[in-house]
Nucleic acid binder design. Sequence first.
DNA 1: GTGAAAGCGCTAACAA
DNA 2: TTGTTAGCGCTTTCAC
Lengths: 336, 336
Amino acid sequence: MTSIHDVARRTGVSIATVSRALRGLPNVSPRTRELVQAAAAELGYVPSPSASGLSGGRHRAVALVIPSTGRWFYNRVVEGADSVLRGEGFDTFLVILAATMRNRQDLFRNALLRKRSDAVIALGIDFTVAEKEELRDLEMPAAVVGSAVPGVHSVGVDDAAAATAAVEHLLGLGHRRIGHIGGETAYGMDRSVGEDRSTAWREALERHGIAPHPSWHGLGQFLMPPAKAATTRMLHGEEPPTAIFAGSDEMAFGVLVAAAELGLRVPEDLSVIGIDDHDWSESYGLTTIRQDPYEQGRTAARTVLDALAGVESPILTRRSGFELVLRRSTGPLPRG
Amino acid sequence: MTSIHDVARRTGVSIATVSRALRGLPNVSPRTRELVQAAAAELGYVPSPSASGLSGGRHRAVALVIPSTGRWFYNRVVEGADSVLRGEGFDTFLVILAATMRNRQDLFRNALLRKRSDAVIALGIDFTVAEKEELRDLEMPAAVVGSAVPGVHSVGVDDAAAATAAVEHLLGLGHRRIGHIGGETAYGMDRSVGEDRSTAWREALERHGIAPHPSWHGLGQFLMPPAKAATTRMLHGEEPPTAIFAGSDEMAFGVLVAAAELGLRVPEDLSVIGIDDHDWSESYGLTTIRQDPYEQGRTAARTVLDALAGVESPILTRRSGFELVLRRSTGPLPRG
DNA sequence: GTGAAAGCGCTAACAA
DNA sequence: TTGTTAGCGCTTTCAC
């Protein structure tokens, strides 16, 4: 494993100069810098993260905290964040909050995390009050993806607006009995995302003078199987809806499967809309509100990287865009 | 950030003793050890991975190399591996082989990876010959999940056997026109997994005197959308199959969606079987060959951890189990 | 059973 | 512009 000394020896300069040259610091003559860079490349030298972490406090790693690996959204964010991090020479290490609460004690106060990484990106997590404070008081850059935490950088769609757009689409098609499969109860999930979407659904209906029937609100935990089950129950209820707004595309898939099993045609008998534009949505012909988690991950990564570089942007809550994608799963309310 | 010195001061012993006590090394009196452990707990002391990495060469981290985050199988393996790693105090850091080849140069020779982690777990990767050698010659423990690499620890199902079981199931139901949606062409994937399954399909048919029609073999890239597209083409061909064996459940979902769109009833008009037992398969009523990637991840993690502890097991290729899970997507060939 | 001291490979003053 | 030096927080001889 070649060290900084090897590069120094090879170039005839001191290790301090090698360090400066390689990190792009000033006070290095262009010629020296070139020489050093050439030697480093030739020798395949890569600075030891342990050593620089110890001495300079820079570990060249950021922690990515996710509730689980099981949802499309998280995976996309992880890939997005990792792509810019790796591009800048940072490693990404994963903190998966398993179903067991164990890993979650003092989540952000956790010394290991702090001793190993330079920044934290946390996604879609239903933070406790204590955790929000920990996050805010963390002595390193942090960003959250999904929901806003006061005092911390965040990226995400405006959930209320996105959900409203979905419901308005159904209302515009003439539907009035509009059900909703929400995700707000899942453990460890960002509660506010699910709640904001559900609240927006309810309020949109009420604005149009519709009082949602209690059976129109099902709980899908942001997962396909429970969404399917909830939909089946809903469609068996009295006054079944003619349209369903699912809080995520994965839940919308569950709605579609449930409908198919009951022999309902989509969109003739039931219109379905989701949020996300999952990789599979086009194949399902699912109408949805598209958002871009990959880009959100990239933005979060850039934010913490900027902060590490001293470029502290004042913008705290960043809203990423969304758009309605029309496909085959929604249609006008048939004249009854 | 409390350091080893704080613990030493608090206990009145030297830092060397603290180090020994905490790591469970011999030559520490029981009483001292207790005192040290108590003080460490009280102070919330966690050894700095950078420092121990630098001095002792133990980083307490393992690299998890995955092609992408987009497939269920990988995610399950990652969660499984992470669960045991974290349990032993190791961090998991991710190396995602993006679609761009960039990250892949000298994959396992990559100094950064070696300077940061104690072991490597690589999954489902279509290794080049050079990479297989790098992996074998790596001066740290390694394990692969999915396919066997000669000379390296590996875990995975016997793909040929699992695929054969799937096809035999369809044959047993009387089907003879059995199509296959395979995954062997996807970039960056472990080619042998897809190929082994496809070969097994072909051989099973041939053993029964059936010459598979060329149109019966579609390419699904281990992803749902291309699997759906390939299925649609296959079912539109001459001599459409009465049953389809998909190389993974995600591809089987694509088959189901394609069939539904064409108005085919499952299993009356088309039987479908997959491999995996994906989280969603039960909701789809999909008959499948179940395997357990979570457990495979755990096994891989234990293997490298054992090796790090000096317990080098001689078993190189570990076969993990599979079983047929009967659901509603397969049925007897209707008498034509 | 325990401590002192030398390093691991870097970064960050401070000199020159 | 460059080099020297003192750590960063541990592990690991080697003494005691």
